[in-house]
Amino acid sequence: MAGNDRERTPDPFTQFWGEMVSRMSGVGLPAAPPADPGPAMKQMQRVFLEALAKYCDEFMRSPQFLEAMKQNMENAMTFRRQVDQFLTQALHGAQAPARGDVEELVALVRNVEERVLARVEELNRKLEAATASLRPPGGKAPGARRAVSRPGARRKPVAGGRSKRK
């Protein structure tokens, strides 16, 4: 199974690489990890990065940055619209469907789906009402686990994958 395969047999390339680097770095390479450059340097680095992070956070909350971000988004959307327009014209010229055509089709299918599912839901409600009227007083229909009393309650998906929705 794909998982944590811990076996590592050094392959020829790894062996070659290690040997090459050892020779290039010169003799006498100590086995221990390199010495800590010193807490002072680390401290300086940490303080610098903290200050930079604080500055970035303040800058990204400023109205100037927000306006710039808004303008950037507008430019990106304009560019995208232009690309879409160009591609649509090119595809239509080649008698091929474009993105907009597919989106219209998807919207149509979804509308049909919503109407059909709403109708099925309505029929379901009528059926349940009819079934409930046939039950003996105070009894449960066999196999029933939960009475569906909330309007618009969902059902299991119908065969074919798409479930009903309100």
Partner: peptide, 19 residues
């Protein structure tokens, strides 16, 4: 104070690249 680059650590890391 390491004003010179940490050559030993650098080459060790280069050696570790395949891993």
């Amino acid at each position: 104070v390491p004003f010179i680059p940490d050559y030993e650590g650098f080459w060790r890391r280069v050696a570790a690249m395949p891993r």
